[in-house]
Design a binder for these strands. Structure first.
Lengths: 144, 144
DNA sequence: GGTGAAATATGTAATTG
DNA sequence: CAATTACATATTTCACC
């Protein structure tokens, strides 16, 4: 991974819909050369995907929260592949510390959040932090 | 926002680089009609951006963590706009509960993580949960 | 990695239902 | 008023240097 690859990653993280033509202008390389580099970054798994980001509130999901769960050993949430498919679960991380895992969730109403907490309660003790605002909802990675 | 808009959001969240032509085939509409709907979703702020997602480990940032901070009132991290520009900070959420805010961070080495903790310590009491793995690093929103 | 030509995609404007 | 068609422009993708 050289300086040009890092430039390409920065541009595509900022705007995933840039054309190879526009990218080629920005990194001063021909379009085919850019296309080949990008395909290599995709094949190597450096780029894991291209995603439109949707504002949860404007999409009708104004309640977002970080939920830590202290799982009941054998009933651990991480052992149930079903949970990763729940539409409320935007992120799921296995972590060290008091909790077993942390979920970022988004729901339309408090009633649905309560129902989700009940469902999560089957796996362990949930502890929720409601998100008031997200000064940085996402930021591009600066590769080393 | 009708059913077609929701289809478009689903397709663009799954693959932000789809052409209007391909989108038009998938939702059974002409390309100009699709382009206009997408521009409306962008203008309305439903779509907040299009971003390539980069694998932190493959980009040389194998250490990721969730860091909660109990800020020292007046020195609150949220009052320093500088923090949002630190390249290690991938997400920053203001939350309810014991902590003032939660940060998702990524760094190349434990030594750099230690340095980051020191810097964060100026704002409040940090409590870190190291991320072991992310079964769901990101998932598309299902609008209501 | 660059170049040039063919195939494909995009943007605009006029037109239709 | 939103969607379609038609056409000019731009982009992607090959083959080849």
């Amino acid at each position: 991974m050289d300086a040009v690859d890092r430039r390409l990653l920065a541009e595509l993280q900022a705007d995933a819909r840039l054309s190879y033509n526009e990218l080629s202008r920005r990194v001063s390389l021909s379009a085919p050369a850019v296309a080949e580099r990008v395909r290599r970054l995709e094949a190597d798994g450096v780029i894991s995907g291209y995603h439109a980001h949707v504002d949860p509130t404007r999409a009708g999901l104004p309640i977002t929260a970080l939920v830590q769960i202290q799982c009941y050993g054998p009933r651990c949430l991480l052992r149930d592949p079903e949970v990763a498919t729940w539409p409320e679960v935007l992120q799921l991380h296995r972590v060290t510390g008091g909790a077993c895992c942390v979920l970022l969730v988004a729901v339309p109403t408090m009633a649905e959040f309560e129902a989700l907490c009940d469902r999560l309660g089957a796996y362990g003790q949930p502890s929720s932090s409601m998100i008031l605002s997200s000064p940085v909802p996402w930021r591009p990675l600066a590769p080393r």
